[in-house]
C-alpha cells in the first residue's frame, strides 16, 4: 500500500540577494515519489540538495508551492489534515539538543501524547513502551543533557514513537553523531522497520544506505535517481554529479570485477568479497 505520495512537488525559499532584492531559491522542484508501507527508504544527496526540505514537506511543516503531497491519502495543503498527518509521521531532526522539550527524559517523551490529549494512564504506558523500543528504559528519570549523542537521539526517536506513528522520518538524525551513536540509531531504525514501521532515512553517509530497500538520490532540488542500493552504487557518474561516493566495499567490488575477478558487483559485505577473491585465486 502506498503511504506517501509526492506528485510533481516544488518548494521555493525566499532568497535575499546582496543588492537587497528578494529572489527565490529552489528547495525542491518537480519531485515525484511514492513510498510503500513497511519500506525502508534512504534519501541521499549532498548538503543543500533539498533533502531536509523534502522531509519538512512530508508532515506539513512546509506546504508545497506546486504539486501535492499526500500522506495516507490526506493532502498536507489542507489545514484540517495537518494534525492527523503529524500523528502518523514521526520526525526526528539533526541536532538532538534542539528537540528536547523537557529536562527529564520521560517528560520529554511524554510531550507528544500529552499534545494528543491522551489520558494520563495511557501516557505512562506509551512512554514506557517507547523507551523500551529504543532501549532507554533505565534513563527515564535522568536529565537528557548528560547523555551521549546517540542516547539523546534515541530519546528523540522515543518521543516520536510515543505518538504511535506509522511512518518515521529521520532527517539527518545521524549527521552529528559519532560512529557508535550512528550505529545505535540505525539499529533502532532497522528494528522498528522489521516490526512494520515505514522508515525514511535522510543521510549523506552512504554506508547507511546499504541495508535499505530503496534509495532516492537528490541533487539541486531534483530527484535524479530511484533504485536499490546496488543499482545506485553502480552508477559512478550519477553519484559523482550528486556529490556522493559509493561505500568503499561497493567500489572495491566493482574494481575487482573490472580487474577480471569473478565477484558479484552487488556484493557489499567486505568479508564475503574477501572470500570470493580467495576462491578466485585458488582456481
Amino acid at each position: 500500500m502506498e503511504v506517501i505520495n509526492l506528485n510533481n512537488v516544488s518548494y521555493y525559499y525566499k532568497a535575499y540577494n546582496d543588492d537587497g532584492t528578494v529572489g527565490s531559491a529552489i528547495g525542491v522542484e518537480g519531485v515525484t515519489l511514492s513510498v510503500n508501507e513497511g519500506a525502508f527508504v534512504a534519501l541521499v544527496g549532498h548538503n543543500g540538495c533539498g533533502k531536509s526540505t523534502l522531509a519538512k514537506l512530508l508532515n506539513g511543516l512546509l506546504i508545497p508551492k506546486g504539486g501535492t503531497v499526500t500522506v495516507f491519502g490526506l493532502d498536507t495543503a489542507k489545514k484540517e489534515n495537518i494534525f492527523e498527518i503529524r500523528k502518523n509521521v514521526g520526525m526526528v531532526f539533526q541536532n538532538p539538543d534542539n528537540q528536547m522539550v523537557a529536562s527529564i527524559v520521560e517528560e520529554d517523551v511524554a510531550f507528544g501524547p500529552e499534545n494528543l490529549g491522551v489520558p494520563q494512564k495511557e501516557i505512562v504506558e506509551r512512554v514506557n513502551e517507547a523507551l523500551e523500543q529504543v532501549g532507554m528504559t533505565e534513563f527515564a528519570k535522568r536529565s537528557p543533557h548528560r547523555l551521549s549523542g546517540g542516547q539523546k537521539q534515541r530519546i528523540a526517536i522515543a518521543g516520536a514513537l510515543a505518538i504511535r506513528p506509522k511512518i518515521l522520518v529521520l532527517d539527518e538524525s545521524t549527521a552529528m553523531l559519532d560512529p557508535q551513536g550512528r550505529k545505535e540509531v540505525l539499529e533502532v531504525a532497522h528494528r522498528l522497520n522489521a516490526q512494520g514501521m515505514t522508515v525514511l532515512l535522510i543521510t549523506h553517509f552512504m554506508e547507511e544506505v546499504l541495508d535499505c530497500d530503496q534509495v532516492v538520490v537528490m541533487n539541486n532540488g531534483h530527484v535524479v535517481k530511484i533504485g536499490t542500493p546496488t543499482e545506485i552504487f553502480q552508477d559512478k557518474r550519477l553519484l559523482e554529479d550528486a556529490g556522493l561516493r559509493a561505500p568503499r566495499t561497493a567500489e572495491l567490488a566493482r574494481a575487482l570485477a573490472e580487474a577480471g575477478f569473478d565477484v558479484s558487483v552487488r556484493e557489499t559485505d567486505a568479508l564475503k568479497l574477501g572470500g570470493d577473491v580467495c576462491r578466485n585465486l585458488q582456481k
Binding site: 511543516l61 503529524r86 509521521v89 520526525m91 531532526f93 534542539n98 522539550v101 510531550f111 499534545n115 505518538i163
Partner: peptide, 12 residues
C-alpha cells in the same frame, strides 16, 4: 529547530 520539533510532535 525546536519549533519544528514541537510542531512535528503535534503541539497545538
Amino acid at each position: 529547530e525546536l519549533a519544528n520539533a514541537m510542531n512535528s510532535r503535534c503541539y497545538e
